[in-house]
Nucleic acid binder design. Structure first.
Length: 344
DNA sequence: AACCCGGGGTG
DNA sequence: CACCCAGGGTT
């Protein structure tokens, strides 16, 4: 009786998932390609992002940057513009750097080996496994939040997914289940996790592996996965000055630390001479995953060209207007403020 | 190993 | 309101 790592008693689970995937795969057009560039962009766009939320961004991005070379030769700010509103902006910065890595280190040819793909900026073990398996027949499970949920339920495993060892732990569980066709298996797990084995109210009646699911047979799917670490949010206040004159206003680019990396924003301070020009202030709130923002925007309508020039030049602000601001990427709440200003 | 990074959807 | 999402980087 042969007994290697791949002929586990649980292999039939992976095969059921494969055959389920064959009939029930979500109709996503990027599944029609094995172009590693497109799959890579796809994986980055949809990190921590639901398909419906990122689909337009993905399509527009691919249309503007259809290949590695086009992306590598683009300006970083234009890449950021195509990422506007998606969040986690370091993804855009890293994707751009990685495209230049591919041009410089791999002669513009997307690397085939998992270990090489892993060297690209912004590509971690999940993404390297996904691209490798989908495009090149790699044999690594693409372990993500779906894997955690599905596997912890099937095995009724209470391993804490907050634990930093969760990735390697569930990778080993995945190996027990994983069939030969790893690319389709990885995507099957994504679809099952998204459509059937959902975080709340999973559709176990429609699940192809409900016979194999310990959590289901025990009526305890809601207890998995176990996650001890709770999300904590803190309050943060931001104050901006919308300094404008003759339809123009002042902006600057943020650093690549803290939130909204390298996005554009309004001045956060003004000189004393500008204070008399404040005409109104708008206060609103904006929720981020780890922060509750309170944002105050003081509108400063400058009627003195001398003061405008002095302030603008001294602080090296960028002068823009409503039309030109469409070429820059602003944080969501500031984007909204600019849009509302058009109606005033 | 702990912490940080967005925006939108869900129950 | 808490939790989740085709995670990765930094410290």
């Amino acid at each position: 009786m042969k007994k290697d790592n791949r002929s586990s008693d649980f292999l039939h689970i992976g095969n059921k998932l494969l055959s389920w995937y064959g009939k029930n795969a979500r109709d996503l057009h990027f599944r029609q390609t094995k172009d590693p560039y497109k799959i890579w962009i796809c994986e980055i766009v949809f990190q921590q992002t639901r398909i419906n939320q990122g689909l337009n961004h993905y399509n527009n991005f691919i249309k503007r940057f259809p290949d590695v070379k086009t992306l590598a030769e683009a300006e970083e700010n234009e890449v950021l513009l195509y990422w506007k509103g998606l969040g986690y902006y370091s993804r855009a910065i890293n994707i751009h750097k990685a495209s230049q890595q591919i041009m410089n280190d791999y002669h513009g040819v997307f690397p085939v080996e998992y270990e090489e793909i892993l060297k690209l900026k912004g590509v971690g073990k999940y993404t390297a496994a996904a691209v490798s398996s989908i495009c090149f027949g790699g044999k690594m499970p693409a372990v993500d939040g779906n894997f955690y949920r599905v596997l912890s339920r099937i095995f009724a495993d209470d391993f804490d997914i907050s634990n930093s060892k969760a990735f390697s732990y569930f990778s080993q569980l995945a190996m027990l289940v994983m069939p030969e066709n790893v690319g389709d298996f990885n995507q099957a797990m994504m679809d099952l996790g998204s459509e059937i084995c959902k975080p709340k109210n999973p559709l176990c009646g429609e699940c192809p592996v409900n016979d194999d699911c310990l959590a289901f047979s025990r009526g305890k799917t809601s207890e998995y996965p176990v996650k001890t670490k709770k999300v904590k949010t803190e309050d943060l206040s931001l104050k901006y000055y919308f300094v404008c004159r003759n339809g123009q206003f002042l902006i600057r680019q943020r650093k690549d630390d803290f939130i909204w990396k390298k996005l554009f924003e309004f001045p956060t301070t003004i000189s004393r001479e500008l204070e008399p020009f404040i005409t109104n202030v708008k206060t609103f709130t904006h929720k981020l995953t780890h922060k509750n923002l309170t944002i105050e925007i003081f509108r400063v309508e400058v009627d003195s060209e001398a003061i405008w020039n002095t302030f603008t030049v001294k602080n090296q602000y960028i002068i823009t207007d409503f039309e030109a601001s469409h070429d820059k990427s602003f944080p969501k709440p500031l984007e909204n403020y600019i849009q509302n200003s058009l109606k005033d």
